[in-house]
């Protein structure tokens, strides 16, 4: 019975895209968390809600409009934030609420909520098509390659912007690159956990991994492992018990975080002897 689920090819697609998204969210999320920008993923997700509504209304495939609206609005808010010295958390609040507001108005104009909106809000990983899977794998591959190529610059400007600048790192361009990659990652991941729970995948595996890892690469690998485990286990468990995958995935990630807190406070975890 338990093995039967692997024979369904929709399950293969779900797990393959789930793993790709898990890796993507944990890596991109690690840079955001370390920049004290944890909720930025959430803000982009909410602005993608506006994009999705726009797509549903205009008849364009909603994910495309979501990519466009999220990335453009994330870049604009970053520009405004830098230009007018607005704090990170306030700029997140602006982006987050304007996305939802635009979405609600568009939905209102086009005659109320439909079923489609719900699948974007809460994810629909079991419905990913072959084309979706290919797109997810492609984007994951491209972003990972970019991160590997610019690894030093990304890490350095996250560690300390000023010193990175003095070392000749083009810090501003790198910041926009991170925002751009976060935009792509969020919209790509909407299919897995939906708009409402995206930031869980960005943040929870990373805050957990930071408690274990010493160096950066080690922390990134630990985070990816937690993330992949949560996603795969979440998909399987939710299928077996017929519950929502998005919620299950996030609860498993939170479970790992909770265990880590427990181990830490019991004093069992020490990074060195």
């Amino acid at each position: 019975m338990a093995f039967e689920i692997f024979t369904f090819s929709f399950m293969h697609r779900a797990i393959i895209s789930g793993i790709a998204i898990a890796i993507l969210c944990s890596v991109v999320g690690l840079f955001l968390v370390l920049r004290r920008y944890s909720l930025f993923g959430d803000a982009i997700a909410h602005s993608s809600f506006g994009g999705i509504a726009l797509g549903l209304m205009s008849g364009i495939y909603p994910l495309w409009t979501a990519y466009g609206v999220s990335i453009v609005s994330a870049l604009i808010i970053t520009r405004i934030k830098d230009r007018f010295n607005i704090s990170g958390d306030a700029s997140i609040a602006v982006l987050l609420s304007s996305g939802i507001a635009v979405g609600l108005v568009i939905i209102g104009l086009s005659g109320g909520f439909t079923l489609d909106i719900f699948s974007f809000l809460f994810g629909s990983i079991l419905l990913v098509s072959v084309n979706d899977t290919i797109l997810i794998l492609l984007l994951t591959g491209i972003i990972l390659i970019v991160i590997l190529l610019l690894y030093r610059q990304l890490l350095y400007s996250t560690f300390n912007e000023e010193q990175a600048k003095v070392s000749g790192v083009p810090v501003e361009k790198i910041n926009y690159l991170i925002v751009f990659m976060a935009g792509i990652t969020v919209v790509t991941s909407i299919q897995l956990v939906g708009v409402l729970l995206i930031s869980a995948l960005f943040v929870i595996p990373n805050v957990t991994a930071i408690m274990y890892g010493r160096g950066f690469k080690q922390t990134a690998i630990i985070s990816m492992s937690f993330s992949i485990f949560s996603v795969v286990a979440g998909i399987l468990v939710s299928y077996l018990f017929d519950i929502t995958p998005a919620g299950t995935i996030v609860l498993i990630a939170i479970g790992i975080f909770g265990c880590t807190i427990g181990i830490k406070s019991a004093g069992l975890l020490s990074r060195h002897h």
């Binding site: 370390l34 890490l155 560690f159 990175a164 930071i210 010493r214 160096g215 950066f216 690469k217 922390t219």
Partner: peptide, 12 residues
């Protein structure tokens, strides 16, 4: 609590 070792920092 930045997860970077001494080696990571020097390598930057």
């Amino acid at each position: 609590n930045f997860p970077a070792t001494v080696n990571d920092v020097v390598k930057m």
